[in-house]
Design a protein around this nucleic acid. Structure first.
Length: 479
DNA sequence: CACCCGGAAGACCT
DNA sequence: AAGGTCTTCCGGGT
């Protein structure tokens, strides 16, 4: 344990700890998942109140929750909106997507697709979503269906399209609201209702449910589905985070961290290490919240990416001196204090000798899985290629591996991941569009983190293309 | 010199 | 026992 001398007083010292932020009140996942202004989260007021009334005026054929609309419904909605708001004709071709995808579009996206009407559409959608959420909330809690959690197995394919996570940013703060908890809860529940699966089309293209990924990227998932689809995280995060605001089991689960960080509520570690890493830890707490929750691994800061996400999305921004978003929309973040962050990570994992060099090695392993990418030219800058939701699902990546048998793996098209300049893509989870999304083939599809698989493919270095078989994703049990 | 990159081996968990 | 996820080391490149 060489404590890093740097600015960051290492671990054990109380002082150092002072610097350590508190535990996250909730798991950031939510943010990703429920980005849009969900009722509670956001501001209470919808852009324009008058719009509220429109809900009742929607064509009767339209489900009240826009996230469950199919393409036709979207078209119907657009037509209705054109009439109702007397806006310019909308190019429906620009909205070849389902409701979920449309809900993911940002105001800007909508404006681009429907010049002059974007704001209106955005406002209306937000209202509808909120209403739907509120409604859900009142409904008896539907069991969180497993499906919700893993609506789609990851498609091997998920390439990371350029993620556009802006959504998140929007309500970060609001998360604290108590609502968040409940919201999360029923959002999850709600998930059922939403069409998680991004259109088949996606699948077709991508070949797997991964659109999830794709979408995810496009943040689709979250927002809407996030609610649903990605229910998975919800479990974690929501549970913990939300409700008990303030206390969470999240990031700093580390025993040590735990102990060090006073405010960290965290479940008592059973054993030092365990605490740090075992998901079980949660079980006690949050998990129960979601009984049916599936098997989804609750990483809760146990995994590096999750840990980073939690710090990055800390609503209170307590970790910005360690790590901060450079561009949340694209998932680009910067490690402000490498040594300090490594220390935190070390605490989290109970590896007190952790340093940036080691931690960065772990980060590099994420390259091959397309979880992360290095932002070239900028020191300590990385980019998440997947949102938390996806990442959680990624757990199943092992499955992917199976799927992509070596045979399937076609040689890495591009030996090196092109560092694409990421420009935020519209959040759309269009059914088929998704696949197209990523222009550059990031063909390096996610692979598993495990070293073994790659070995075979090792030649390929880090990209393994998973040929996404269009179909059956990974459903299988993963061991 | 500080980063950054991956290979290799092994530890620790689940 | 096997597999996943790092952790540790390390040589090499920029």
């Amino acid at each position: 344990m060489k404590l890093v001398p740097g600015p960051l007083p290492p671990i054990p010292t109380s002082t150092s700890m002072e610097r350590l932020p508190l535990p996250l009140p909730f798991s950031p996942d939510l943010l990703w998942r429920y980005p849009l202004g969900f009722p509670s989260m956001g501001h209470q007021n919808p852009p324009s109140s008058p719009l509220l009334d429109y809900k009742s005026q929607l064509p009767s054929s339209l489900p009240s929750d826009p996230r469950v609309w199919n393409r036709d419904d979207v078209t119907t909605f657009l037509q209705w909106a054109e009439r109702e708001f007397d806006i310019q004709p909308i190019d429906h071709d620009m909205f070849q997507m389902n409701g979920k995808a449309m809900c993911l579009l940002t105001r800007t996206d909508l404006s681009e697709r429907a010049p002059g009407s974007g704001d209106v559409l955005h406002n209306v959608l937000q209202i509808l979503v909120r209403e739907a959420n509120n409604l859900q909330r009142m409904l008896p809690s539907s069991p969180v269906t497993p499906t919700s959690r893993h609506p789609y197995p990851l498609s091997p394919h998920s390439h990371p399209p350029t993620p556009n996570w802006n959504i998140l940013s929007q309500n970060t703060e609001s998360f604290h609201s108590s609502h968040a908890a409940s919201l999360a809860a029923h959002l999850m529940a709600q998930s059922n209702s939403v069409t998680l699966s991004p259109a088949p089309s996606v699948d077709s293209q991508a070949g797997s449910p991964q659109h999830a990924d794709n979408q995810s990227f496009s943040h689709s998932i979250f927002s809407m589905n996030g609610s649903n689809g990605s229910g998975s995280n919800p479990s974690d995060s929501d549970e913990d985070g939300l409700d008990k605001k303030g206390y969470s089991a999240s990031p700093p689960n580390t025993p040590s961290a735990y102990s060090l960080m006073p405010q960290m509520p965290y479940m008592p570690p059973r054993s030092p290490k365990e605490a740090a890493s075992s998901p079980g830890a949660f079980k006690g707490t949050g998990r129960e919240f979601f009984p049916n929750e599936s098997p989804e691994p609750n990483t809760n800061g146990r995994l590096l990416w999750d840990f980073l996400q939690q710090l990055l999305n800390d609503p209170a921004q307590r970790y910005t001196s360690y790590i901060a978003w450079k561009n949340r929309d694209t998932g680009v973040f910067k490690i402000v204090d490498p040594a300090g962050l490594a220390k935190l990570w070390g605490i989290q994992k109970n590896h007190l000798s952790m340093n940036y060099d080691k931690m960065s090695r772990a980060l590099r392993y994420y390259y091959r899985v397309n979880i992360l990418r290095k932002v070239q030219g900028e020191r300590h800058c990385y980019q998440f290629l997947r949102n938390p939701t996806e990442l959680k699902n990624i757990k199943n990546i092992s499955l992917l591996r199976q799927q992509m048998s070596p045979t399937n793996t076609k040689p890495p098209p591009t030996p090196i991941i092109p560092h694409i300049t990421i420009k935020p893509e519209p959040a759309e989870v269009p059914e088929h569009e998704v696949a197209h999304h990523t222009p550059l083939e990031y063909d390096d599809k996610p692979t598993d983190l495990s070293m073994e698989g790659p070995r075979d493919l090792s030649n390929n270095t880090r990209h393994i293309n998973i040929v996404c078989s269009p179909d059956p994703p990974i459903s299988g049990p993963h061991h």
